[in-house]
Design a protein around this nucleic acid. Structure first.
Lengths: 228, 228
DNA sequence: GTTATATTCAAACGAACGTATGAATCGTGG
DNA sequence: CCACGATTCATACGTTCGTTTGAATATAAC
């Protein structure tokens, strides 16, 4: 027994939840895969819900702390934080965790992506609570980086941003339908961060939807001409 | 009994699946809510999976047909379809269905959004099969509208696009955390389409991720100046 | 009106679920 | 060595699940 029972349960459960979903993973399948007794989950975590909360607490707290740490660094460095830096501070901790295959971060990130749309109550509550704080911290910085947007439009775009990130993290098999990779994992990760950042930065900088969609971008970094 | 049993089961099941998820909705809760006998599901649909497939078949076929119809119209109208029109043809049928609250389309769209990340096998298979065909049809048009992107970058962006749409459709409560609405439903819908289209159009037009994020847009509809 | 077909019904099946229990085992300090 | 708290164990409980069954009822054709 290399790992203590408690850690082993957390790892295995994280893996199975990510692979088969929350409700479809039984406690028996977890304890069997972990090679521990069925009652161990209730002994160490009280209940299945307790196990879920423990899984999220173990990973989310450091990830969000890293987000806020990067935000503070940027706030010290810039008067108005460039948009792409801001987006990077928000999405990188998640995507970096997803690169940590060996430490199990990748497993968790897929689970986290799923949790955004999974209707399980205890799961939603736990995740939402942890996100609220981070989003509130990032809101003012986004508002400064995108002065051309009114509050409502900005919030919707943050919604789109979170959605795109969540979908990426879910790593749905839909993805493999569209893009097939042939690069080593770390290069592929770096490429994904760049692609996603480029996509999101441009999307956030889009002209307010009241204007014509062909109107030039006049926000943040880009200058462009109207099309023909 | 206003509706025949079969239709009533479809409507109620669609609603409950959207509200509580697939695995968490039991056949007994469905038949109780529909006021029909427990055995009715197995009689009319063979199994719970059969019911799920019937739900998706009823809605997805018309929606994808509408997508392809709009694509054909644009192909007749344009030599190279403008990006925003293309995106509109892809996302509008989904969002319009989501506007159809009375017909139950809205319920289904939330279920569809969830299905992208739900790991249930029969569900994934059904949805993926129906999406493949539509994406293959749209791919060449997107490639023409975005000539500056190589194949791989394009496919990733289509992935981001689908992801953002899926997340919007899932209508996660996370959304209500960010943006609160105070408009009538139809106006809100129109606004959402415009906001989402603006966001996605700009994102798709982002400079290839190899370039600087501050570089001007030089794709598709835009002529751009080098930035400072 | 009788027959054939389609649908609905109450009841039960075996399996799997999350949880609880009490005895057995382990690890360690006195 | 022993005693005591922490942990693991086999086992069982009560529920709920999806599915099946065979009888009862509705519907329609001749």
């Amino acid at each position: 027994m290399a790992q203590p029972t408690k850690e082993r349960i957390l790892d295995v459960a994280e893996s199975l939840f990510a692979a088969h979903g929350f409700g479809a993973t039984s406690m028996r399948s977890i304890t069997n895969a972990a090679g521990v007794n069925l009652a161990a989950i209730n002994y160490h975590f009280g209940s299945k819900d307790g196990l879920v909360k423990a899984i999220f607490a173990r990973r989310l707290a450091p990830m969000n702390a890293e987000r806020l740490r990067r935000l503070r660094v940027l706030q010290r460095e810039y008067d108005t934080i460039p948009l792409n830096e801001l987006i990077g501070a928000f999405i990188s901790p998640a995507l970096e965790l997803s690169r940590d295959a060996q430490g199990g971060g990748a497993r968790f990130i897929r689970l986290l992506g799923r949790s955004y749309t999974e209707p399980s109550e205890p799961l939603q509550d736990a995740v939402r609570g942890m996100y609220q704080q981070v989003i509130e911290s990032f809101k003012p910085a986004f508002a400064s980086a995108l002065p051309g947007l009114d509050r409502e439009e900005l919030y919707w775009r943050l919604h789109f941003l979170v959605g795109t990130l969540a979908y990426c993290m879910a790593g749905s098999d839909m993805m493999r339908l569209i893009a097939t990779s042939r690069l080593p994992d770390d290069q592929e990760h770096e490429q994904l961060v760049q692609r996603l950042t480029a996509f999101l930065t441009a999307g956030m900088q889009a002209p307010p939807s009241g204007q014509s969609l062909h109107a030039p971008l006049r926000l943040a970094a880009g200058h462009a001409h109207p099309s023909s």
